[in-house]
């Protein structure tokens, strides 16, 4: 056993040898290992993947050992509060972290009051809604009209999460056009993508939340297959999708995707003609009392990483869109985004 382990160490040790490239100056305000906690328990999900990409580049740039820990949102907030002051533990998550608070999910703090917002990093443009291939609903407008006319439309999403916001936008759109009819949109609360797909296969839902990455192949199945689906709405901005490679994903090209985003497929957000959209944005959060020097240090490092231009291709290879903003700008951007969604939620409740 001993010799086996020794051999293993040699083999893996070489794999760990990092090419020390353009590491930053040695007067760093932090040292030791950097721990990034993420708002998901899964090491297979998009949060982990985005975190892993930025972590690899940060590790090289700061010449630090950076690890990504999939602790989940609530445990992540706790770690940030308890261990985040020194900057050695920081958090990475997407819009869920304030949406959870807007929807009143237990354990979600107001991130803008309790934490310091760090830079935005990237977008997962894949947030989408699907229907069975033989569904009578051809467009989002069909759904809005059907609900307006009193038809019950069941939409499968995870409550209080990033998949819930598109549902709320639909409710709001129905309410604006047919006040009172928004009750015809029924939220079918499902957790994992597997459960959502299953709800569609079983006829327990008419529309499900999904993703371009996870569901594209289902849209290519023949119509007589029970599993066949069709995209009906992609919530990302049209201009976000335009930054994708032209060939798109699988056999769904970028031009096809643009048919399901605004302005072609649109969900009105307010009476003055604003359109709803949702780019699932990934960003960092710090402990409230973190030293501003550390914030500046991270901002500088990430600005350099994005200027060097290598990280962009890493994101695009995994179907993500790089979207960097340094902390001050990121905070303004996210506060605006949150206010937008808060308005939708209060409009539904009125």
């Amino acid at each position: 056993m001993k010799s086996l382990k020794a051999g293993l160490y040699i083999a893996l040790g070489t794999a760990f040898a990092l090419s020390a490239s353009t590491a930053m100056a040695s007067d760093a305000p932090i040292s030791g290992n950097l721990r990034i906690v993420i708002g998901s328990n899964s090491t297979g999900g998009d949060t982990y993947q985005n975190a892993a990409i930025i972590a690899a580049h940060l590790g090289e740039k700061l010449d630090m050992n950076v690890r990504v820990d999939a602790v989940g949102a609530v445990a992540g907030f706790r770690a940030l509060k308890q261990q985040g002051k020194t900057g050695a533990t920081i958090m990475f998550n997407h819009d869920q972290s304030y949406l959870g608070n807007l929807y009143g999910v237990k354990g979600y703090d107001d991130i803008f009051a309790e934490y310091k917002i760090g830079p935005t990093i990237s977008i997962n443009p894949g947030n989408a809604y699907l229907v069975p291939k033989d569904s009578p609903y051809k467009t989002v407008d069909d759904i809005i009209e059907a609900a307006g006319k009193g038809e019950r439309v069941r939409v499968s999403v995870e409550r209080g999460s990033a998949s819930n916001i598109g549902f709320s936008a639909l409710e709001n759109a129905v309410k604006m056009k047919y006040p009172g009819a928004e009750k015809n949109l029924a939220l079918i609360n499902t957790g994992s993508q597997s459960d959502k797909n299953q709800a569609l296969f079983d006829g327990q839902a008419d529309v499900i939340h999904g993703s371009i990455q996870g569901n594209e192949q289902f849209t290519r199945l023949p119509a007589d297959d029970q599993k066949a689906m069709r995209f009906i709405w992609i919530t990302a901005k049209g201009e976000t999708i335009e930054q994708m490679p032209e060939e798109g994903l699988g056999e769904t090209t970028r031009d096809m995707m643009l048919q399901w985003t605004d302005p072609v497929t649109s969900v009105p957000q307010s009476a003055d003609g604003d359109l709803f959209n949702f780019d699932k944005m990934f960003y960092f959060m710090y402990n409230k009392d973190i030293d501003p020097k550390i914030v500046a240090y991270f901002d500088e490092a990430m600005t350099e990483i994005f200027e060097e231009g290598k990280i962009q291709s890493d994101f695009k290879r995994s179907f993500f869109i790089p979207s960097f903003r340094a902390s001050p700008e990121a905070e303004k951007f996210l506060v605006n985004k949150k206010d937008d969604y808060a308005e939708i939620l209060s409009a539904i409740q009125k």
């Binding site: 090491t43 297979g44 993947q49 892993a52 990455q213 192949q217 297959d225 994903l249 699988g250 290879r317």
Partner: peptide, 13 residues
């Protein structure tokens, strides 16, 4: 995660 990071889709096809 391994599939996605390599840019390969998994699904019915």
């Amino acid at each position: 995660g391994a599939f996605t990071l390599q840019g390969v889709q998994v699904g019915p096809l």
